[in-house]
Nucleic acid binder design. Structure first.
Lengths: 117, 117
DNA sequence: CCCGTCCATCGTAGATCCACGATGCATGGC
DNA sequence: GCCATGCATCGTGGATCTACGATGGACGGG
């Protein structure tokens, strides 16, 4: 899986003015489903911790996350997968390591959806 | 179906300037747990719909919620219970009916916690 | 090469969630 | 009193979540 991946300077450090307005609606059946999906992904303390770690450090860390949490490596990997599947974080291969970082677009989207309540 | 719609004061109609600053921190272990709990409660489409219904109508409706959702009455009652347990909504008995309404404090708290990410 | 590191995935057991119908418990009308 | 109504709760299957150790694959150092 994922055969060719070029060397990437991990995640973008500072997207500067990454201010796309996000045209999607914040209400309606689709938005409800989307909000539920994102909220469910945030609905676990370990994943909240991971999100905070990635937000705090501008530089994207990797398996240091495992050291920060009182969980086994496989468990942390699963939580990372959940966050990645809903698009809240992104992982980039960097040699033997993997760097994770926040996906600001999705995080902003979540804030918009919550804000619409 | 039901000759309904009795005039119900139920939940507080207009909280007016209910602008307490909410002194609790938005970070730390406790906040992480709290955010996870609230997010999990929102993490289901039916509960998002319920929240939207209650936010939209200033007047607090009751089992009309059951009519709005494609779910059995007992299932809706369980979802209401989940939302009530985390303090996102409140139910008040009014004769044979129960009026539900948003708890604005908790909703603001959720927005603060999400905003801290 | 061979090996150690880093991470993802598999397999699994126990807990929790989600849906439903059935039942229970009030209240209010007759 | 008696019954209908509105809602909560119980009980129960099936699905999903959460944790772990074990295994596997990719990479880089020796």
């Amino acid at each position: 899986m994922a055969p060719h991946l070029k060397k990437v300077p991990a995640c973008g450090p500072a997207p500067a003015s990454n201010e796309e307005p996000d045209l999607r609606p914040v209400e309606g059946a689709g938005a409800d489903e989307e909000l539920a999906l994102l909220a469910k992904a945030v609905g676990h303390p370990a994943r909240v911790q991971i999100l905070r770690l990635l937000v705090r450090r501008e530089t994207c860390i990797c398996g240091d996350i495992v050291d920060e949490l009182p969980l086994a490596q496989s468990t942390v990997s699963q939580h990372l997968k959940v966050l990645k599947e809903v698009g809240l974080i992104r992982g980039e291969i960097d040699g033997p390591r993997v760097g994770y970082c926040i996906e600001p677009r999705t995080l902003r989207r979540l804030k918009s959806l919550i804000g619409s309540l």
